[in-house]
Amino acid sequence: MRRTSICIGILFFILTDYAWMQNTGYDIMERALKRSSIKTMQADLKLVLETRTGDTREREIAFFSKTDPSTDLTKMLMKFVYPKDVRGTGFLTIEHADRADDRFLYLPALRQIKKIASSGSGGNFMSSDFTYYDIGTPELEDWTYRLLGEETRNRRLSFMIEALPKSQQVLDETGYSKIIRWVDQTDLSMFHSEYYDKSGELKKKLDVEKFTLINGVPFATDMVMQDVIIEHTSRMTFEDLEIDIPISDDFFTPRYLQREQ
């Protein structure tokens, strides 16, 4: 089943069309999401995980993705670079429109590629506070939107948009009963979001701390997700980000997962 397009959708929420005065929450979200037209992406992704006691661990991942514009389906390949004990671990996800994603894991210790359960979009991304859903492009039609009002936050005049899951399936897959997004009225970038769990409690907060202009489009390249229940935070940063570079389809196959370098 197609759920999320995993080409780092949180990077895309920018609009240059300022005819927002008559917008509903749906209109704003629709325009924001339609900006996401990236075909390929390559980046060094860094994750810093921090517990409530201040204990931190770092992860560094070589990240590649490719989206078919005709189907909006994405292939993603990741290789762990750091820490060194998991270096070479590879992870390949291939989205499908009509069934669960294919997921392949290469564990260097086993010298073997394993086809694994897709585990759903609500699963945590690399043990961080980001889920696969959080880092994917949200499916516009999976949610109903309501404009809650305006608020100045971080010195940015913004819309507050509430998103509610349209179906039980969306609720089950994402684990979110509600998401509230703060959208900048100037450029419609989504710089803050709050995620509520199935019981309606505030679960996580996302802050985008840095946008980087690449090929004329601003991307969120530094963001912090905080789990307010277990008081755990994850910072995700993108370095050496390149978009729409040629990457062969052959690269997104299990064969390439096991190559040493």
Binding site: D102, K115, A117, G120
Partner: peptide, 9 residues
């Protein structure tokens, strides 16, 4: 053989 789903295989 392996037969995979969302949360099982």
């Amino acid at each position: 053989f392996i037969f995979t789903g969302e949360k099982w295989a």
